[in-house]
């Protein structure tokens, strides 16, 4: 475990050095993403301000919901964005290289890249969450700020683990992009900006059980916004870290299964 951490951190250092080689690109990238997300946010701002509220969620609550998702998504993007690129790693032979080295394959894969684009997301979401906090006139006890950190990390893990789970099918087919893309539609297309309670049972079950993206923002937000008593499933607000750990376990199992299959089929 300690070895894995040392190897991971050493590799992350190399990955950061790689990014620093392209410094102009680095700064432009952060600004670019910042602007991109601010644009998306501005659009929903215009749309939302036409309604007084959305299924009992006020404008600033929606802003909070959106940016809680963006925070987890951004952290995930910084460290785990290349999970989506596994296919490419396999096709280009980088993955074979990983297998010829005496360290855990997943640690080597995850440590291979970092992506600064997520930093723009993180900066923007923190700014917007702060604004929402003030506008909603929230007064959290101190521990809730700590819980916020836990939730941010578990959101990142939820998204990364679901992606890893799906992308591990690349080992069997070498093509997984379509699968990952359609699944992530439920993430940025559904839970990102709409409170899940406005959807029907089917969709709610999908984003809670099968592709539990709702644990990235909706369920944790119930607690932060003091809404857990307003819905019958309010208890789920506490379960995001548990869901993250379960998904992590499942995705690692799927990854290991995938590698076994890859080694015997070599597809």
């Amino acid at each position: 475990m300690r070895d894995n951490l040392t190897i991971y951190l050493t590799m992350i250092r190399a990955a950061v050095l790689t990014r620093m080689e392209y410094r102009a690109d680095f700064i432009m990238g952060i600004i670019g993403v910042f602007i991109l997300n601010a644009g998306t946010l501005a659009t929903s701002w215009v749309l939302l301000s036409r309604f007084h509220d959305l299924h009992g969620w006020t404008f600033w609550e929606i802003v909070f919901l959106y940016n809680l998702w963006l925070l987890g998504h951004g952290i995930r993007a910084v460290f785990f964005r290349h999970i989506n690129l596994l296919e490419q790693f396999i096709v280009e032979g980088t993955f074979d290289q990983i297998l010829t080295r005496p360290a855990n394959a997943l640690v080597q894969f995850l440590g291979r890249e970092v992506h600064y684009l997520g930093i723009g997301d993180v900066l923007l979401s923190i700014t917007m969450l702060t604004l929402a906090y003030q506008n909603l006139d929230l007064h959290w006890p101190v521990w809730m700020f700590g819980w916020m950190v836990v939730i941010a990390l578990s959101s990142a893990i939820v998204e990364a683990a679901i992606t890893l789970l799906l992308v591990s099918t690349s080992f069997l087919t070498t093509r997984s992009r379509a699968l990952v893309n359609s699944a992530s539609l439920f993430s940025w297309g559904v839970v990102q900006q709409y409170p899940v309670d406005m959807f029907g049972k089917l969709l709610r079950n999908i984003v809670t059980i099968f592709l539990p993206f709702a644990f990235m923002n909706y369920y944790p937000a119930l607690l932060f916004l003091g809404k857990q008593d307003q819905v019958s499933w309010g208890i789920l607000t506490w379960y995001a870290p548990v869901v993250a750990l379960i998904l992590l376990g499942l995705s690692i199992a799927m990854w290991n299964f995938g590698i076994k299959r890859y080694q015997s089929t070599g597809s």
């Binding site: 250092r13 190399a14 790689t18 392209y22």
Partner: peptide
Amino acid sequence: WWDIPVIESFRVLKTIYK
């Protein structure tokens, strides 16, 4: 590692192979 100095790649390998 494609984009970093050779010696930095060696450093990573040093850690991986202990």
